[in-house]
Each structure stands twice: as C-alpha cells, then as structure tokens.
Design a protein around this nucleic acid. Sequence first.
DNA 1: AGCAAAGTAGCACAACTGTGCTAGAACGGA
DNA 2: TCCGTTCTAGCACAGTTGTGCTACTTTGCT
Lengths: 196, 196
Amino acid sequence: MVDAEQRRRELAEAVWRVIRRDGVPGASVRAVAREAGTSMGALRHWFATQDELLRFAMTLVLERASARIEAVVAEGGPLEGRVVRLLEETLPLDDERRAEAEVWLALTARALVDPDLAELRDRSADGLHLLCGAVLRALAEDGRLRTGLDPALETERLYALLDGLAVHALTRPSALPPDRVRWVLAAHLDDLHPPV
Amino acid sequence: MVDAEQRRRELAEAVWRVIRRDGVPGASVRAVAREAGTSMGALRHWFATQDELLRFAMTLVLERASARIEAVVAEGGPLEGRVVRLLEETLPLDDERRAEAEVWLALTARALVDPDLAELRDRSADGLHLLCGAVLRALAEDGRLRTGLDPALETERLYALLDGLAVHALTRPSALPPDRVRWVLAAHLDDLHPPV
DNA sequence: AGCAAAGTAGCACAACTGTGCTAGAACGGA
DNA sequence: TCCGTTCTAGCACAGTTGTGCTACTTTGCT
C-alpha cells in the first residue's frame, strides 16, 4: 500500500494548480485527474466525492500556513523580535504563499454560500484573530505598546489590515509588490510603539 | 418600447439575488430567468451572453456604491466632517451594502481567473484607492493629520483596513457587527489626528 | 506460485450548462 | 385594420458535470 496521506496530498496539490489556473469552478473531477496525471477512477478511490476533495485541499492550505507560523513561534525566546516575520507568513509575499492565498480567497468567497467550507473558513479566521491578539500581548509585555491602546480594538485593526493587505497584494500585485506590503505592515507595527 | 435600461437593471438585480443565495456558480441563465420571473429567451434578448449579464450586474454594483459616495461628497463644504460617513459607504453595514459587498467579493475572487472581470475590479480598486487618498488630503488640509505621516503609506494602510474590515464584516458578521466595524474605523481615523 | 487486497482506468448515466433558433404574443404608428 | 418592430417563450443541441459501476492491473503477503 502506498502512503495514503502522501498520495492524497499529491492530488490536493493538483487541485491547487487547477484552482490557481482556472479558479474553483475549473476544478472538476476530470480536470484535477488530468492535472495529476491520473484517472477519474483513481481520484475517486482517494476521495469519494468532489466536496471531500475540495475540503481536503483547503484544509491542507490552512495546515501549511499554521505549520509555518508554528515554526517561527517554536524558535523560542521573546516573540517581540519575530512579530513581523510571524505576520508575514500569512501574506502572499512569495510564490508559495501566493498560491495559498489565492486558494484562501476562493475559499472565502465560496464559503459565503457553502456551509461546509464556512466551517473551515471560520477555523482559519479564528486562528488568525488569535495570532493577532497574541502578537499584541507580546508587544505589550515587552513595553513596546503605546499606552492608552485598547487591545481588543488593536487586534481587530491589525487583523483587518492583514487581510486587506493580503487581498490587495493578491489582486493587484503590480500596485502592491511584496516590498510595499512589508513596508505598510512594518509601519503599522511601528505606529503601535511608544514614541521615543 | 419599455425602458430598456430599467429592464436590464431589474434583471441584474435578479442576478444579485441568485448570487447572494447560491454564489456566482449558481447564477446560470435558467436560474436568473426563473428568479426574475421570466424566460430564457427574454433574458437573452436583453443580454446576448451570460458573460455580458454578469459583467453588467457587477458594473451596477460599482455604480451604486460610487453614486452613494458622490452624494456625500456633493453635500459640499469641507470634507473633513463627512470622512467617516464617506468611508462607511463602502462597508457592509446594512442589507443593501451587504448585498453589494457579497457580489464584490465574488467578483474579486473570480477576477483572479477572468480577465474581463479583472478590468472591472481594477477600476473599482483604483476608485477606492483614490478615495482614500482624497480623504487623507482633506484631513491634512484641515490640519487634522499628525505630522510625520507619509501620505502614500497612510493611503495604502487605510485602504487595506477598509477592505479587511469589509471582508471580516462580510464573512463573520456575528464576530464583527456593524457597530464594531464603525468603532474600528473611527479609531483608526482618530489615530491619524494630532495628539491633543 | 497463488490469491486477496489495493489501486487504476474509464464507460454509462442523468442532470445540468450556454447558446442558436423558431414561433408567437404584445405593442405602436399609419 | 394592418404591419413591422419589440419582446417573450421555450425547444434543440452539443458539451460538461459528478458519480455509480465494472473490469483491469499492480502489489504484497503466504
């Protein structure tokens, strides 16, 4: 028996490639099978239905992103110095993260009308919201936060800024190249620091 | 002859209703005709192809939003006092704007793989970006802007915050109800003001 | 070698899709 | 009243979709 999980991952990656090229509507069973260089029958052996295939592909996106973030956290020591890198893991700053973000956006749009995907999207949103909260707490504990800031509000603001940047970097990469994204994010974090 | 533009609008609004209920993939010619209470033939009389129908529906969304904004601008006098209301016109704070935002998100996602829609999306993005720039300029001219702020950066930051808030209010209305959206936006604008 | 399980291939089917097309209904001016 | 235009209705067609299903090949264990 081949490594089942590995095979499912390969097929899910074929899903990503198709979605990036033709969007979610293009990710038909036949198209994915062709992209993966296999047959409809083989595909259906690993995923009983199309929904299951899509859900798995989406789940994998979230897992990869949170694994990268976890890796940065696991470096140990005070978070404060790694805050920017942490947040940047969620932004489409290179090809890999761009691919993930494209799939994420497609998921977000589709989740508006697909309850199954909505659950996945909520999990990812909660994760990011928690991350933003943790970042602010880390900054506060280091005394790198201006006084008078409301943590709940700043969490919401940072979270919105992150996803807004993601959408813009994704849809208008020429107007908002990676350096510019980093610039805006860094400026926002700087702005939270106490004045010198 | 019936009012042609009016009829086309009615059909486009049927498109919105279908998109809100079933997403863009659900907006088939037959489904839209049924929703509009008419026939495929009648629909095809007003829109030769499905693409034309979708594009028109999307265009209408952008037109309505910019009309609302234009109306606020046209009230005359210094912009500064109306800045919040201006920006709030772009956010899904009531049912009407929520419907528009849902269609906008669907458009944004689909534009990643559909060049025709990408053009529309770019136009809307440019408009919003210009609006953010104008708002900052208005604040600056009123001396309501902290010194040392980079206008280009603050434009990008405000723009990202707006769209991020829109996405979150849209996808997680319970976690981010209208009042909370207003709260975050107002706080961000306050934060641009000089300290008292 | 033999055999069961795992994996692959792809046909068949019904249900959809967008569009071409024809037929007729409703309307407006002469 | 007649006639041409505008508008509506919906069938026909070719194409695509997801899934059920059977037949086949490959793999690995005894």
